[in-house]
């Protein structure tokens, strides 16, 4: 374990807690893409199936359970409890265009053609594009509440910090995982536009307005 990964995991945990809390406190999921949340729930449930087969550490196990529980709870709030506030009209990204390539790529490029490994690979590929419906929704509505942009900043930072973790591990432990690294770079690249807007606008107290 290294500082980059710890801060990355905590940033990730912060992001999903910010989102769950925002929806719960405001009793509304306005401006939140339910489709992205479904994709994230799928990412964690397919990636963390090894909870039952491999014990890495207490930290690893506890965090996996939290990520699965919080992502499912968030989907429940969006699609069940506060369904009336879900913004169907702006959450229109076709997620089948993300799921199909992730499945195909996982079957073609993987470390091992076993059930759990294919699911893990699918999860890695899917996670790299899972935020697209949310970013698409923000671009369609032309703006995002500041709490939503804090959520996106924390979520985007987590994988950016993981890239530093992978550099650290390559130099210090001489291990690397190209699938995770390439997907992580793609994932972080998707946030660059948002990071720019967040730093130049939100941190100066302005609302996040995307050029329509």
């Amino acid at each position: 374990m290294n500082i980059f990964r710890i801060i990355g995991d905590l940033s990730h945990l912060l992001a999903i807690i910010i989102l769950l809390r925002k929806i719960w406190k405001t009793r509304s999921c306005a401006g939140i893409s339910g489709k992205s949340q479904i994709l994230f729930a799928l990412v964690y449930t397919t990636r963390y199936l090894d909870l039952v087969t491999t014990y890495v550490s207490l930290y690893n196990t506890v965090m996996k359970i939290i990520f699965i529980a919080v992502s499912i709870a968030t989907c429940y709030l969006i699609y069940m409890k506060f369904k009336a506030t879900y913004d169907h009209n702006h959450d229109t990204f076709r997620i089948e265009f993300l799921l199909a390539p992730a499945v195909i790529l996982a079957l073609l490029i993987n470390h091992d053609f076993t059930f759990l490994e294919i699911l893990w690979t699918f999860s890695i590929y899917l996670e790299s594009v899972a935020i697209l419906p949310q970013l698409f929704m923000v671009s369609k509505t032309g703006e995002a509440e500041s709490i939503t942009s804090h959520y996106l900043f924390a979520l985007g930072s987590y994988r950016a910090l993981y890239i530093l973790n992978w550099i650290y591990r390559y130099h210090n432990e001489e291990i690397y995982d190209l699938i995770a690294i390439v997907a992580g770079i793609v994932q972080t690249a998707l946030y660059c536009d948002f990071f720019y807007l967040y730093i130049t606008k939100v941190l100066r107290g302005k609302k996040l307005q995307l050029p329509a």
Binding site: D9, R47, T54, N60, M63, Y162, N165, I175, D177, A180
Partner: peptide
């Protein structure tokens, strides 16, 4: 070098 055999990251 060693590609990781188990996925020890989240």
């Amino acid at each position: 070098e060693g590609i990781k055999d188990i996925h020890d990251e989240l």
